[in-house]
Design a protein around this nucleic acid. Structure first.
Lengths: 223, 223
DNA sequence: GTACATTTCAAACGTACGTTTGAAACTGGA
DNA sequence: TCCAGTTTCAAACGTACGTTTGAAATGTAC
């Protein structure tokens, strides 16, 4: 079997298991057994489990990140500020194109991204911000331009709120899909979820800032 | 040492470690060592690690859930539908009262809740919905009443989006606090984050629903 | 076909985990 | 004081993990 074949079999088996169970709760023995390769193959081909995790994510990141970078640059080159919804919508196409990389690619990638942030995998956060920090900074800049009302701190928090929404939804998407199917007769797919996500995120990010006094008023009024 | 003292020392040590590192990545040896009790004490007093996790959460749930239940009942008894913001604001006071149960109680509880949903701890989700499902159903009903425009499926998704925001923010709140402090000279506390969260969540949940055609328009327009 | 490098394989390594055990140390009431 | 009941303790158990090892198998170039 060629070097590439083995590596690919390992990464294919690993990514689905990682997406289902998380990184820490997936063992190399599960991975190599599903991939039908020897246990030692992971360490031989990737060095360590940590490096395998990075390789699995890198396979998608190296496709989607240059695409996002293009889109961000294009929006930044415009004369006037973009609508927030337009900035967010930029993600849709590159993400859905991951389905051409491999079947279920979009779902897998987003689930993996979710695991990367919820599992204790500090090295993954570092890996991403080291390799793609400049791309993500362009996105933040675009959001700032589209929401001039909001100061940097507010945008920082709201973007992390949004990251939480995405990451949590994708990490538990399997369970959510099951419930949606059982309770609402939906046949939800990843595109449907993204469609539901965008207006939610856009409204949240551009929400009117509340003053402390106002919040107290509301809290008091209901007591 | 009395039964209660030991159990409390274990739960105190466990909850902070769980909040920092997650359930699966915190070992009984770390817990008993920090609590200065024997390793076997956890199994003697709680039966198993799983039951310790539930006990740690239960300590907060049994305080906050009856309070929330009261508030929900009160809002449900009103003649006309409540504002969404009022419904959400109901959480603020009961959550902040957890700081009186013990120092940092609010933060700890929300972090633990976050871990419960992001770690692979299916038993916790089951535990909560078994014990407090009826309370949470009242909340869903209140949201539905305050957003008559939205159908049940849309509310289902948006409430889970919101859950993701809360859970993710709290699970990584330590890191977020550090960044906010370094980059924006904030001294963020849990109350400040809640203050930032409410308008974001309210705006997201009550966002205007987008039609598929409109989304395509936006996606196309930006290409 | 031989010599070399690459890849696979079964086995073992050391470590860490949750849990169990049985004896020792306590406790409070008769 | 004694004793039953409770709680602590050090030690061990069995299991699973990521990684390493060295020999066997496979592939490749001449």
């Amino acid at each position: 079997m060629s070097r590439q074949q083995t590596q690919q079999k390992i990464m294919d088996a690993a990514e689905s298991l990682f997406a289902e169970t998380g990184f820490n709760d997936t063992s190399l023995r599960q991975i190599t057994s599903r991939a039908e390769v020897n246990l030692a193959a992971v360490n031989y081909h990737f060095g360590s489990k940590k490096e395998l995790i990075q390789a699995v994510l890198q396979r998608y990141l190296q496709v989607v990140m240059p695409r996002l970078n293009e889109e961000f640059e294009r929006l930044l080159a415009r004369q006037r500020a973009n609508q927030l919804m337009d900035v967010l919508a930029v993600f849709v196409r590159p993400l859905l194109e991951l389905n051409e990389v491999k079947p279920q690619g979009t779902t897998l990638f987003l689930q993996l991204l979710g695991r990367g942030y919820t599992d204790t995998q500090g090295h993954l956060r570092r890996f991403i911000s080291q390799h793609y920090g400049s791309v993500l900074n362009k996105f933040v800049l675009l959001v700032q331009q589209s929401c001039p009302r909001l100061d940097a701190a507010e945008i920082f928090w709201r973007l992390h709120f949004s990251l939480g929404t995405i990451v949590f939804t994708m990490a538990s998407s399997e369970a959510l899909f099951d419930i949606a199917e059982a309770d609402f007769d939906e046949q939800p797919d990843i595109e449907g979820v993204i469609r539901r996500l965008l207006p939610y995120l856009a409204a949240g990010i551009s929400a009117i800032t509340i003053q402390p006094e106002q919040l107290d008023t509301i809290t008091d009024a209901s007591s």
